[in-house]
Amino acid sequence: MCDALTLSSAASKPQKIARPERRQARAGMALFAPALILLVVILIFPVTVAALLSFTDYTLGRPGISWVGLRNYVDIFSGSSYRKMIVATVLYVLIVVPVSVFLGLGAALLIRSLKVGQSFYKTVYFLPVMASLLAMAIVWEFALHPTLGIVNRTLAMGCGTPVEWWSWFAHGCTEGFPLWLGDRDYALYTLAFIGIWQSFGFNMVLYLAGLTSVPSDLYGAASMDGVKRGWERFRLVTWPMLGPTTVFVVTITTIRSFQVFDTVEALTHGGPAKSTYVMIYAIYQKGIAQNLVGLGAALTVLFLALVMLINVAQRRFIERKVHYQ
């Protein structure tokens, strides 16, 4: 009786049936649609475009376009300036990542051990993360100015003091201290130093968060189990418990260092002698400044492949090693 009543009223006004599932499905698609379209247009489509253009000799403003196969890639791997690009990029990443992660962890551990002044150091070390990297790069350039800069002026004050037993220092006193950004032997290391200076505070903050999530009972258990020295405690509890944080910190620092651009563009233009010719700068210079779009696109594809590889490696590593489930 009851059923029949419902049925008849439903049949007479089919559009009035409340179907929460269908309504939800429609709303869900509608709400996600703008994001979907934009993700495809802004991220997916350009990747495809880059992949296609990397096989052509396309340049902006010229009507013709022709298929050149793998020539752009061959050029990259055979040219000496591109070899320098790989060397500069990889060297930069290999310096910045370990040092910045290690300093971030060290600062976090030291700050956590303090009885007073925790927030002071946290604030100070985080400042570079906030400040515009370009502005600070220009300041560093001035601080490292061969004659006007505070760094070489301070170093010069050490001349004539016992510090001169260090042969590098003595050499600086007689021959002049390094030009830093203007010297091919120092430029990349100087940029790496600025990169570390800017990024380790971020890692510190992530490590501090990681440290607060280590259950304090574990330290109690370690004490009861016979752990007395700080180093043993670090090895048994802190370091393993920071595993997920470390993987994340290493990944994000790696990807960010691969993208170094501001300091290179503003301070060295990839020089001297291409010693700081890093990948994103090469993409910018070839693909946009010199309008060699095909070449730039090929570099883009290589760069993306590299970033994807790091991300996949991270995921694998996290799943296997550090989540302990």
């Binding site: 698609m29 990807i255 993208q259 883009t300």
Partner: peptide
């Protein structure tokens, strides 16, 4: 909300998370 293709949509977002916009500046 449960809608058709939600898992795929989430997959897309996670994939896009991996693309640094700076890297695709050229296209």
């Amino acid at each position: 909300l449960k809608f058709w293709g939600r898992d795929a949509a989430l997959g897309l977002v996670l994939f896009c998370l991996l693309i640094p916009v700076h890297a695709i500046a050229l296209p």
